[in-house]
Design a protein around this nucleic acid. Sequence first.
DNA 1: CTAGGGTTAG
Length: 758
Amino acid sequence: MTRQALPFLENLNTPILHCLYSAVASLSQTRQAHAYIMKTGLLADTHLSTRLISRYANHHSFVEADLVLRSISDPSISSFSTLIYALNKSNLFTQSLNVFSRMLSHGVLLDTHVLPNVVKACGKLSALKFGREIHCIVCKYGFDSDSVVQASLVHLYLKSDRLRDARNVFERLPEGDVVTYGALLSAYARKGCVNEVKEIFSGMQNYGLEPNVVSWNGMITGFNQSGNYVEAVVMFQEMHSKGFQPDHITISSVLSAVGDIERFNIGIQVLCYVIKLGLLHCKFVISALIDMFGKCACAGDLMKAFEETNEELMDVGARNALLTALSRNGLLDVAMEVFERFRVRGRELNVVSWTSMIAGCSQNGKDIEALELFREMQSAGVKPNSVTIPCLLPACGNIAALVHGKAAHGFALRTGIIADVHVGSALVDMYAKCGRIHLSRLCFDRIPNKNSVCWNAIMGGYAMHGKANEAIDIFHLMQQKGHKPDFISFSCVLSACSQGGLTEQGWRFFNSMYEDYGIEAKMEHYSCMVNLLGRSGKLEEAYTMIKQMPFEPHACVWGALLSSCRLHNNIRLGKIAARNLFELEPNNPGNYILLSNIYASKAMWDEVDAVRDVMRSRGMKKNPGCSWIEIKNQVHMLLAGDKSNPQMTEIIENLHKLSLEMKKAGYLPNTNLVLQDVDEQDKEQILCGHSEKLAVALGLLNTPPGSPLQIIKNLRICGDCHAVIKFISGFEGREIYVRDTNRFHHFKDGVCSCGDFW
DNA sequence: CTAGGGTTAG
C-alpha cells in the first residue's frame, strides 16, 4: 500500500463520501459530498476528485463536473480523462476537445485511454487539423506502438476522407482488429477501389482474422454505393458460398445492386433466400425488394402485388420505392394515382416521396406538373433538400419557367445547398435553357468543386446559344483544371462547332477524340458531325460519313442529314435520308413533313401530294407546333391554330397590326416556308398562326413595354417567324429569347444571336 | 470505456 492511498482509505470511512463510490448516487448526494470535500480540503485527493467528476457526469451535470476539475490546483490525468470520456459518451465532442486542450496546457502526461477518445471527437467534428496535431503528439510521446490509439487515427482519417493517410497509419499498426479492417474495407469499397478491397480483405484473412457480417456488409454496401454493382453481387455470392449468413442489411444492399444490373433471376433467388431467412418482414428488405422489381422492369407485377398487400405493412421507404418503380417504368400516371391515394389516406410521405414524384414528372415531359408538385410539397410543410432542387430545375429549364427557376436558385442560396455540385450544374443547365447564358456562367464560376458534369453543362449551354468559341474555350479550360473530357464533352463541343459552322475545327475534335483521348465515337457524335457537315452545305461529305460509320446509323443520324437537305433543298440525298427514316421510325410525322417541304420548295406538288397521301393512309398527323411562355409566374401553352386562348382576338389583332407595320418597313412574308400548295393569301394566314408568333403576341399584350420575352418552341423555328420576331424585337424595343429544338435565338434591336444561321 | 454497417429521390 502506497502512502498516497492512505487518505483514500480514510475517506472511504466517511459516510458522507460513501456515495461517491456507488453508481446509484443521486445528484443531491453528490452535491453534499462535493460541499464536504470543499469544506475539508480533500479536493487534492486524486481519487476523490475524480470520483466526484464521474458522479456529476453520470447525471449529465457537466458544468458542475467541470467546476470540480477547474478547482483542483494540480489535476491528474484521470480527472481530465474521466470528464473527456463522459463528454464523448454524451456526444459533446466540442466540449471534450476543449477539456483536452486545457489538459495539454496544464502539461499533464497523456495515456492510451484518453487519446482514442479525443481522436474520436476530432473525427465526429471533422476537425482534421486538430486531429493531425494530436497525431503529432502521439508520435512525439511514443504511442505509435499502441494499437488502440493507432486504430482511432485510422478511423479519423477514414472519416475525413483521407484514405491515403488512413492506410499509412494502418500499415504500421502492430495489431489489426476486425473493426479497423472493416472500416478500411468499407471506405475503399465506397470509393470503388476494387483492387485495394481485395488486397486488404485477403491480408485480413492471411492475418488470421475471420470477417464478420459487418465486414461483409461494409464491402457489399460500399460497392453498391460506388456503383460497382457486379462486385457487390459477387461479394454476396462469395459470402454465401463461404457459409456466412447475411442479415437484413446485406440483403437490402445486394438487392439494390441486383436491380441496377437488372439480373432478375438473381433477384428471385435472393427473394427465396429472404423467405428462408425469415427476413420478409423487415421494412428495409421490403423496400429493397420493391426497388429491385422496379429496376428489373417488373412494375406491372408490383402493382398487382401492391393491390393485394396490406398497406399497413409498407413504411415510407417502401412507398417511395413503389412510386419510383412505377414512374421508372413509364407508369407515371399510376404513380400519381398511388401518390394521391397515400396522401388522401394520410400515409406518411417524406421529402424523398415528393422528390421522386417531381423527378418522375420532369423526366416524363410533365414539367408543369413538376412545378405544381413542388409548390404543393412546400404547402404540405415538407422542406426541399439538395436532391429536390436538381430534380425540379430540369422542369424549369424544359419550359423556360425562369421565375420558378430563380425561386429555386434563391432557395438554394438561403439553405446553403448551393455548394452542392448537383445543384450547381442543374442551375447552369436551367439558366442556359432559359436563355440566360450569362447567369449560367455566373453559377458555373461559383461552383466550389466542379466535376465533369459542371463543365459539360456550361459547354452545352454555350453550344445551345451558338457561342462556339466560348464552348471551345471551356473545353480547353476544363483540361487545364485537370478534368478529362468524356464522351458528353465531345458531344457538346461538336454541337457548338456545328452551331457556329466551324467545320474544320469540328473535324479536328472528332478525330482527336479517339486519337488523343481514346474515346470511341458514339451515335450522338456521328449525328453531330452529319449535322455539322450538312448544315454547312457539305451534304455529300455528310452522306459519305454515314456510309462509313462502323455501326448501323440510328434515326438521329439520318434525321440530321434530312434536316440539312431541307435547309439546302437537296432532293437526291433528302430522298435517301427519308427512305431510311421511314424504315427506322415509320410513324414519325416529322420526317414526312420534312421530305414534303423539300419537294414543296421546288414546287414538286405531285410528290408533295404523294407524301401527304402516305401520311393520311397511315393515320399520321403533323405534330402540332407548340410554344410556351411564362408570364407573371404562370406558364402558358399555345398550339398552332388553336383558338382556345381567351385573348385570341386581341392576339390576332395585334399580329395584324404588326404585320402592317412590317409591310410599311418593306417586309414581305416568306411564303416559301409554308408547306402546302395553297394560294398566297391563305399562306399568309397560316404563317400568322404559328405558335411562336402567338406566344410573342400574348407576351406583348401582358407584360410592361420594354420587358424581355421568353419563348420555348417544340419544333425548329421557321424562317418567317424568325424574320417577324427580329422585326418585333426592334420595333417594340424588346429582347426576345426563343428556344427551339435546336438552339437559342436571342433577338435584340432587330437582329438575332444566331446570325441567321441555324 | 469493447467499437463499425443499410433501403427509397439526382
